[in-house]
Structure formats: structure tokens, C-alpha cells
Design a protein around this nucleic acid. Structure first.
Length: 255
DNA sequence: ATGGCTACGATCCGTAGA
């Protein structure tokens, strides 16, 4: 089973790119973030024609997440149960025998801002939620745009980024705490090329300079991580016209 | 130089992303 994540930065702006990528890669499941569209305008029909059932949890202008799967996903839960949040950032569903939790972690804007505090509160709520899900399901994957680069090797210029949002100690501690409940970063189970990133700023020719961050992650429960046969970042879509600033991450599991 | 792109919803600029 192959499971992927992609922050598409508007599904309306990226619909053709998305359909082409699905046609070429044919993952069993794909988690999307930053749909920026209400569910009424989500392209369910076009995706169905492409062979994917979709579950969406969308919102106008900002946020929005969806899970696409070749076989219909079941037991759908939107948001973090018990955590009051107007922003649509989390969607869970079971695909085959895997509990899939699609997340779009808050950006945080600047260290110490209200949005930063919200990001940390949000991480704590996600950790509680995931703890419960791990107790219920042996195969759990938490994947999406985490808006945190786990280590300095996930940052093109750690000196320039030191202390900034996405790399600051409190954010990395929050991500560590989440992983501490029993999640493994699939990407780091394997040898990877140096300076592999998943996001590049649109400005300053950042992609051409490979001035990026690895902030899109696929985190698997211990039992699922044992079945992971590979994980890679697919840079191809970032090279095309009018790309998302993020590019897909794909993991394969021998299940 | 805190800029630089991109998408969106509201216009012809402001907000947000990362």
C-alpha cells in the first residue's frame, strides 16, 4: 500500500496538476492540505472519474483537508475530537487496515505571537488525540504539513533560520512530544539524498537554489513503520508551471 | 532592505502563507 501527502495550496488552482499526478503515481491513498475551498465546490466528480473516492473537510480561503483513496475510506472523523477549533485542519479515516490522520498544522507566523501559541496548543491536542488512536489501531499514520522542520538537516540554511518559526525549540519539542507517543518519521528510516526538502518559498528563486525546508512528514506507528518499504519526496510537481510551494511525500508499506 | 511570490476575496489592495 502506498500512502502520500501533498499540500496543494488551493485545490482549484491545482486540480489539473493533482489529476495528472494521481494518474502517474496511483497511490492507494493521498492526503491533501490547504484546499481553500468549501466542500460544495470540492471536485468530487473529477476525482471519482480518476478512480478516487474523496472525503473532504474544507473551508473557504484558508485551510481544508481531504483524504483520497482508491477504495472508499470509512470511519471518518473531522477535526480533533474535544478540541474546539474553527479552522479545518484535521481529517481521519480508515483505509484498508490503516488509520489515516491527515493534518495541516498551524503555521505559527512568528515565535511568541498569538498564532504561535495556538500552534503549540494545537500540537498538544493532536498528541492527546493520536495517543488514543494508537491505543485503538495497530496501524496508524499521521501525515501532512507539520510546519516544523524536525532537525537542522531538514533546513537549507540552519544558521539563517535559527530560532525562527518552523525550527524554534518549542515547535521542535512539540513535534518530538508527538512522535514520543509512538510515531516514526518514515523518511528517516532510509538513506536519503542530502538537502532533500518538501517546501520552497515562491520568492527569490528558492526552488532553483534548493533553499527549502522539510516540513511535510509521514509519521507511522511502530507496527506500521516496521512494514515501511520506502519513503521519498517527489520533487517533479514543483518543477512544473504554477506549482504548489509544497511537493508530495510518498511512503510504501508491505501490507 | 523584513522586501522578494502566490492565492483568495475583496477590488485595483489587504491578508496569509512559510
Amino acid at each position: 500500500m502506498r500512502i502520500a501527502s501533498w499540500n496543494v495550496n488551493s485545490i482549484r488552482a491545482r486540480q489539473d496538476r493533482l489529476l495528472r499526478w494521481l494518474e502517474k503515481q496511483r497511490p492507494d491513498a493521498l492526503c491533501l492540505q490547504e484546499l481553500k475551498v468549501e466542500d460544495e465546490a470540492f471536485p468530487f466528480d473529477a476525482l471519482r472519474e480518476a478512480g478516487y473516492h474523496a472525503v473532504a473537510h474544507g473551508q473557504r480561503t484558508y485551510n481544508g483537508v481531504a483524504i483520497l483513496a482508491r477504495d472508499p475510506a470509512v470511519d471518518i472523523v473531522a477535526g480533533i475530537p474535544g478540541f474546539d477549533d474553527e479552522q479545518k485542519r484535521v481529517l481521519a479515516a480508515t483505509v484498508g487496515n490503516v488509520r489515516v490522520i491527515d493534518v495541516y498544522v498551524p503555521n505559527g507566523q512568528t515565535v511568541g505571537s498569538d498564532k504561535f501559541e495556538y500552534k503549540l496548543r494545537w500540537f498538544a491536542a493532536l498528541r492527546e488525540y493520536v495517543t488514543g488512536e494508537l491505543a485503538r489501531h495497530p496501524y496508524v499514520v499521521v501525515l501532512g504539513d507539520f510546519n516544523v522542520a524536525p532537525e537542522d538537516r531538514d533546513v537549507h540554511d540552519p544558521k539563517a533560520w535559527e530560532g525562527s518559526v518552523h525550527v524554534s525549540p518549542p515547535e521542535r519539542a512539540a513535534l518530538q512530544a508527538l512522535q514520543g507517543v509512538g510515531l516514526v518519521d518514515c523518511f528517516r528510516l532510509f538513506e536519503q539524498p542530502e538537502k532533500t526538502f518538501s517546501w520552497w518559498d515562491y520568492r527569490m528563486m528558492a526552488f532553483r537554489r534548493n533553499a527549502g525546508l522539510r516540513i511535510d512528514l509521514i509519521l507511522a506507528s511502530a507496527a506500521l513503520a516496521q512494514k515501511c518499504g520506502g519513503c521519498h519526496i517527489d520533487k517533479a510537481p514543483r518543477k512544473l508551471e504554477r506549482p504548489s510551494d509544497h511537493t508530495p511525500v510518498v511512503a510504501s508499506f508491505d501490507i
